[in-house]
Amino acid sequence: MLVDHFPLFGLRLRTPRLELRLPSPEELAELAEVAAKGVHDPEVMPFLVPWTDRPAAEVARSVVQHHWSQLGAWTPEEWSLDLAVFLDGRAVGVQEISARDFAITRRVATGSWLGRRHQGQGIGTEMRAAVLHLAFAGLGAHEAVSSAFADNHASHAVSRKLGYQPNGIDRRAIRGALTIDRRLLLTRTAWDDHRTIPVTIDALEPCLPLLGLAST
């Protein structure tokens, strides 16, 4: 079975409403269709790479290709895990957690997107809380980083709720204009002080070597 060769296909994160896991090919197609229908107001661009500025068919295809490319480039020293987010059994978005030299740095980064019709319901907070639990409780991370443009108020609201603190800025050129990217840092202590969403993790131990950690 595929999970025997790549145990991350067995990993499951669960919150009161959501399940996060790697998608099957059919579920990946469903995710692509969600993205093609829109993940943000077309008047703004919340991503460093403006992948959603393409025609809908290209947006959908880019979701599939990006997912495959992340898995194909995987090494224990540098990895990016794009977990599909399921609400009531339907794919609604993607929550990413990534790291470089995690066994040494004990730092992860996160990013995400969510279909527009599912926004404003607390799902973004719940899905990020799931991967933060994976990072801190499951993997022993010391800190997590994220960033969002200054006008991405929804993302900043999620970060504040989960305990992130400002960690400097970057100046970016997005759609030919200056955009301020606000960096954010979450320490293990702040995560522990702010966590309120219960999360369960299944089948993590077989994945540890792929994440750069020794099995217990």
Rank of each mutant, 00 (worst) to 15 (best):
D101A: 14
L178C: 04
W113C: 04
V199L: 11
E96T: 09
I169S: 04
H142Y: 13
W191P: 02
L186K: 02
E126T: 06
H153L: 15
P198Y: 09
Q165L: 04
R90D: 11
A135H: 03
W113E: 03
A109L: 12
A91I: 04
S98I: 02
L114Y: 01
P206A: 05
E143T: 13
A148I: 10
A99S: 10
D181R: 11
I169Q: 12
H142V: 05
K161R: 15
V108Q: 04
H118K: 02
R128V: 10
L162R: 03
V199W: 07
R100S: 14
G176A: 04
R171F: 10
A148W: 14
L185P: 00
S146H: 05
L186A: 05
A91T: 01
R106D: 00
P206F: 07
G138R: 03
H142L: 12
A203I: 11
V199M: 10
L178M: 13
Q119D: 09
L162D: 02
A177F: 01
R90W: 03
K161Y: 02
A177Y: 00
G89C: 03
W113G: 04
A141M: 11
V108Y: 06
G93C: 01
I97M: 00
R188I: 06
H153G: 07
L87W: 15
L87E: 08
A177V: 09
A99Y: 02
G163R: 01
Q95G: 03
L178A: 12
Q95P: 04
T189G: 11
Q119G: 07
V131I: 06
A177G: 04
A141S: 13
R107P: 00
G140M: 02
E205N: 13
P206K: 02
S147N: 15
R195T: 14
E205C: 06
R160C: 10
E143F: 10
V131S: 07
I180H: 09
P206S: 03
E126N: 08
L204S: 07
P166Q: 06
T125I: 10
L87H: 15
R106Y: 01
H156L: 14
D151M: 09
A144T: 13
I174E: 07
R183V: 05
A148L: 09
I201W: 04
I180Y: 07
D181S: 09
G122R: 00
F149S: 06
L185W: 11
L186E: 04
R106T: 05
